[in-house]
Write a protein that binds this DNA or RNA. Structure first.
Lengths: 143, 143
DNA sequence: ATAATAATCGTGTATATACACTAAAATAAC
DNA sequence: GTTATTTTAGTGTATATACACGATTATTAT
């Protein structure tokens, strides 16, 4: 990922994928001290905002495939950051943060803000908004 | 991936990742008749343009992690679309398309163009360019 | 020519992603 | 209350992604 002379491809998809990998790399590095990827951080944040929440609801809100989320939850449960308080024998999971999970978010938030500022400093307020609007336009296209 | 009421997150990274997943889904569906993902199509196209090419060169051009590319090449080699013509005992691989690979690109190109047009029809010429420029700005930030 | 250095490549491991499929629970119809 | 339907969840499989590490080839210095 260390090539110079970067230039756009003609492929809109490839350009977006490259930018996504790049920004993910940036956020991941900022969050590394907390041992969280940006994807994991996102799951924690959304869980925090919606708890207790089912897998399906959470997936819909994050806009991840449900089965992807099922796998992504595993490391977070293993680390004791998220747990399920649904009584056994029921189908709806009720995912909640643990105390450790809440602590971790607190720490990670500070690093996340640094990453946010880094990006916005680079793009400027105006371009950041423009980008956001364009990305949403694309997202809406997906089935 | 079928949520309505989509709205932007405050997180620039998440927004980009969502858009990337969405556009990848779109291109993948367009390319499905050719049994290629957009990622695989991209590898084929770049190989075609650079052959014979080493793994490192190719990774740098596509801007994928080299070890990621090593794995991604496997299915394409298995399908007989790409092969390595480097003499045994040497270190530099010389990746080339096979005849089947060239054929496949030809087919896939038509579908890819449909996807391109779909996106550009939705965004318009102007916004497409704007988006491209902003994405490049982000890509350049990565280490 | 040999030793030191650099470039190139692959694997182990872990997470991320999604489609096809199955299974179980919850709800609705009757 | 039982049956039918819908909702919810998980697994098998395959690709995608990248870091840490090791190994081999190529190049450079001496």
């Amino acid at each position: 990922m260390k090539t110079e002379n970067k230039k756009s491809s003609v492929c809109n998809c490839l350009n977006l994928r490259r930018a996504s990998l790049a920004i993910t790399e940036i956020y991941d590095h900022y969050l590394a001290p907390c041992q969280l990827s940006v994807s994991q951080f996102s799951i924690l944040k959304h869980t925090h905002a919606m708890e207790p929440v089912s897998v399906s609801e959470l997936a819909a809100e994050i806009r991840l495939d449900r089965t992807t989320l099922v796998r992504n939850l595993k490391p977070l449960e293993r680390q004791g950051l998220i747990h399920d308080i649904a009584p056994p024998g029921t189908r709806n999971r009720q995912l909640c943060l643990t105390a450790a999970g809440r602590e971790r978010i607190e720490q990670a938030n500070a690093y996340w803000e640094l990453a946010q500022k880094r990006i916005e400093a680079q793009l400027g307020q105006e371009d950041t908004k423009t980008l956001q609007a364009l990305l949403l336009k694309i997202e809406v296209l997906a089935p």
